[in-house]
Simulated scan of single mutants.
Amino acid sequence: MAKLSKRFWFQLHGWFSLPVWVLFCFICVTGTISVISHELTWLTNSQARASNPDNLPEQSKQALIDSLIKEHPTADVMSVLSYEPYLVNAIIFTDTDKPYATAYVNQYTGEVQAVYQTTSFIEFMRTLHSWLYFPWQEGYSVGYYLVSAMAFVTLGALVTGLIIYKSFWRAFIQPKIRFNQGSKTLLKDLHTMGGVWSIWFMAIMSLTGLWYLAQAIMWHNEIDIEEHAPIVSEAQLPSASTAKAIDLDSAISITKNQFSEFTPTYIMLPEHNRGMYSIMGAGDTIFYDGYAYSTAINPWTGEIASSKSPETMSTLQTLSHIADPLHYGTIGGIWTKIIWFLFGVILSGMSITGFMMYSKKLVKAKLPSPVTINDTAEAN
């Protein structure tokens, strides 16, 4: 009975990896690359680097927009994104000959270093990893469901693996990888060692993946996690056509007065006269993403129409804003990114070694045994 039980768990463990191993491995690899997509962008694209040899202070967001307008006078700016200090700011805009474009503007020199009409590498990798570029329709994407459903695969592989390898803690105190006992033993040792040391990582990937799945279901059923952006009421619109709205820098300054140590990361400009400045950013909390602090600023009155911070979030909003830092390892900057990247490589490798081990097991099970061959010979 014990053998049957162990065989059952082994087969279940294998089926958590074998049927979907290609998709699972692909998602692991793209996620691993996404973790260091900012750093890879800096390494491979010189136009995305925010060089600052003269140690100049960072210019205001309005000054960066003005730099773009000088080169593209008819540009209609929609939003401004800030990444790492070593990467340029990205200004999203439209123009008469550009239905959608991104300008890379150096925040220290104000220079427009490049204008692209294609998706950035960072956005490409996140999209590929998150929903496989499946289209969104009616609030859902099949790709997003497929990717987030891999949380069950990760969790199932973790649980069944721990059941099979009951004394898993020995891999911590007596690690062993046998290189001289054949490929089967080597694969088993590599898979076991990687699995044991990745228990914490697989648990985080499983839990955050389950949250992404729950989030997808809520989006699909029109359950709002974040409040809709407010608009300026008709009564607050200026009566004179010559009235001037406050500029972006003033709106950012108002937000900084609202939150201490606020750093803007994503800014949406008003789309029409009833639109507001939507300003999002990071604060002094490490477990929240770069959009945990936000305000909606009335451009005509300078009033804060709505605001959000970790202290005022609902439970669902909190989960939404802590999932990405845990999933992509941004909680501690470059050092945690390196750790997440290394364990992402291990998890990707485990999906491959697991497939190889299980496929060898299936091939061996299909081969005729010596007894069967002898019996057949005697019968003839």
Rank of each mutant, 00 (worst) to 15 (best):
F201P: 00
V80R: 01
T185N: 10
I352C: 05
L213I: 05
P310V: 06
N380T: 13
G275W: 09
A50C: 04
T263K: 09
V35C: 03
T44N: 12
A282L: 09
D224G: 07
I246R: 00
I286Y: 11
H327R: 01
L4H: 11
L68R: 01
K366L: 11
A171F: 10
L162D: 04
A305K: 12
G161M: 02
A171M: 10
K308M: 14
S309G: 06
H129I: 04
I252Y: 00
P310I: 11
T109D: 03
T208S: 10
K256Y: 03
E303N: 15
W21H: 09
T118S: 13
Y328C: 08
F124P: 06
I173R: 11
L155F: 14
A292K: 03
P85K: 09
T185M: 10
F287Q: 10
F343Q: 02
G139L: 00
V115T: 10
H228Y: 08
D249F: 11
V88C: 10
F124W: 15
M1Q: 11
M313Y: 06
S167H: 14
K360M: 12
N55Y: 07
G195M: 08
A48P: 01
G290V: 09
T109Q: 02
I279A: 02
I204T: 07
W9V: 08
S141M: 04
W197N: 05
